[in-house]
Design a protein around this nucleic acid. Structure first.
Lengths: 153, 153
DNA sequence: CTACAAGCTCAAGTGAACTTGAAGTCAAGG
DNA sequence: CCTTGACTTCAAGTTCACTTGAGCTTGTAG
């Protein structure tokens, strides 16, 4: 009857480690209610929220961006399917851009690398529009095909 | 006549910061000859090597993987176009896999997120095959569409 | 009642790919 | 000769997304 889950349950059901769930809470991505003793309890709806986070990560959003998206959800009630799909509607173009770039790169493998034109300042492949963009210090971003999270169970 | 470039020239022509070039050298990705005073000098062919590195990064290879690829190039002579294209021939399948995943995700945006099936342990979208893979601690990898390097000029 | 699992907080570590800063050297112009 | 800018090394810092460990408390099964 009390459909409140322990953090371990959420971890098992979502495949996201408990430490990651605490981290998401700290970042404001998810919420929990606390028992008198300070233990976290989650309503079942958190599973969908976590699924959304994992999904968004694989598409390429940072946790900060995901937090911004989640902030658009209606507050005070459990989001409906329509709420979720409204959120994700804007992502299609992002995916399309990335696919287009990969296709450009794939074409370049046969056409460009061997032909001698691969000289950065000239080749359209190596300058897909944003190479000149400013970015602060820190990790250089890259795309990967590895798991976005690891199950703790 | 001496077609040896300064590190600053290479940085300007490639769009890769001088500090990054030193870092690549430390990692064994590129080489330089040194003047008597210890300054780096690069043959023009390094530009293509750097272009290849940037290219490979956008496809999603780590620097370690790129180093392994570069090690396959013939030593002792400047690589030809054929040498380069032989190297990159294996990447197409990697790109294809990534494109396929993005297409799966894109389809899921309209079909899956709203429908209620988005519950990690059930939805095929959130488990593209490798979610169970083991990975040590450290940064969680993600795909991005940001610049891979920033020009210093 | 006593194990023992599971939860808590907080600080520090991880890895990739660099950047930044300190402190010093080298080369060219005026 | 002096300044200026480009170069050198080396250590430490940065971002992101977490994980790990220490030290403690809670909840439950036997």
């Amino acid at each position: 009857m009390a459909d409140l889950m322990l953090i371990g349950d959420v971890a098992r059901r979502s495949g996201v480690a408990a430490s990651a769930l605490r981290f998401y809470e700290e970042k404001g991505l998810i919420e929990s209610v606390r028992t008198g003793s300070g233990h976290r309890r989650y309503p079942r709806a958190v599973l969908r929220r976590v699924a959304f986070i994992v999904f968004a990560q694989r598409i390429g959003l940072t946790l900060d961006e995901i937090a911004a998206e989640l902030a658009k959800l209606p507050s005070g009630r459990v989001p409906t399917g329509r709420d979720w799909s409204r959120l994700s509607a804007t992502w299609t173009s992002r995916i399309n851009e990335r696919i287009a770039e990969l296709e450009r790169l794939r074409a370049g493998l046969t056409q460009c690398i061997g032909c001698g034109c691969l000289s950065l300042d000239r080749c359209y492949l190596s300058n897909p529009g944003d190479r000149a963009g400013k970015l602060g210090p820190g990790a250089r971003f890259w795309m990967g095909d590895r798991p976005a999270a690891k199950a703790r169970a």
